[in-house]
Nucleic acid binder design. Structure first.
Lengths: 156, 156
DNA sequence: CGCCATTTGATACTTAGCTATCTATTGATT
DNA sequence: AATCAATAGATAGCTAAGTATCAAATGGCG
């Protein structure tokens, strides 16, 4: 063996590696704020969603499955940053709300993610960024992972 | 709030999502072969490296830290697909070797990763793929994740 | 009305990544 | 030669993803 990987062959590998590096960089910077790990992602998406979003909607926006979100919310609720409310209309659902305490944390998250983005993307042309985003979109479509705009996905 | 995410803002989020989808797709297809989770990545890299690669070299190639590789190798060794040998030259190092049993497994891994790649990249132009790869490279450089060429990292 | 499929969120368990730390070995410096 | 810093791999403990499963609530249909 030992044949060198040709370009396309590296695509998946590189994609995974770069994604891990990116996330690790943000985590590293936010870790100094007590804001450990990826709860920042949940908060960020929550702040973008219309108020009274349900857990289901939030999970879909973040791009994770139910149980993953449940645990993130457990932590955020314990830290007093969010609260879950049972709505009278449908007692199965719980709407998730940012508490006032989350505001400064969110500011910090926005500043940090923006800073990382600015630093990393500064080397790239607008065209390069646009191409990558288009490619991400196409791949996500193909793999059934389009987070917004629920098309009826026929799985099988 | 509720302002829509503008393009660049989505970059990091999309990157993470697409990477997870890609990996999940391969995992899903390989899971039916008893070959669970990401041990396939380790095997694949091992097959590309010169014989008698050490764990350190393998970890670097795969893009993970030592402990992560240790566990993957533990599983692969228990399954009889690889073996670790202590070399006489330096008794700290262990060279990792593919066993004969790994050959059909590797074939399956190569076929599956190639199939996923072909399906997903079929929609993309050669130029798009090339641009993405170039971007991945630049980002990895910036984040210090260049797999080879260990720079001294000053942590603090 | 009463039963059953669907939906929502929660729980248990598994895998995989990380950092921090440990042990054994090596090799340089005194 | 003895000591001490550096290196290779292993271990422990954390966080976060996933699937499978459960319980409660809802809503349609006989």
């Amino acid at each position: 063996m030992t044949k060198p990987l040709h370009d396309q062959e590296q695509f998946g590998l590189r994609l995974g590696l770069v994604a891990r590096l990116w996330r690790a960089e943000i985590d590293r910077r936010l870790a100094t704020f007590g804001l450990t790990e990826s709860r920042w992602l949940t908060l960020l998406h929550l702040s973008r969603l219309p108020q009274a979003a349900t857990q289901r909607e939030l999970a879909e926006a973040v791009g994770v499955r139910g149980p993953t979100l449940v645990r993130a919310l457990d932590r955020l609720e314990a830290e007093g940053l969010i609260e879950r409310r049972t709505e009278a209309a449908d007692r199965r659902t719980k709407s998730v709300h940012l508490r006032a305490e989350a505001a400064p944390v969110l500011e910090r998250i926005e500043a940090t993610t923006a800073a990382v983005r600015a630093e990393i993307l500064s080397d790239l042309s607008h065209a390069e960024v646009a191409t990558c985003l288009k490619v991400f979109e196409k791949i996500a479509d193909k793999l059934g992972g389009t987070p917004r705009a629920m098309q009826p996905v026929d799985k099988n």
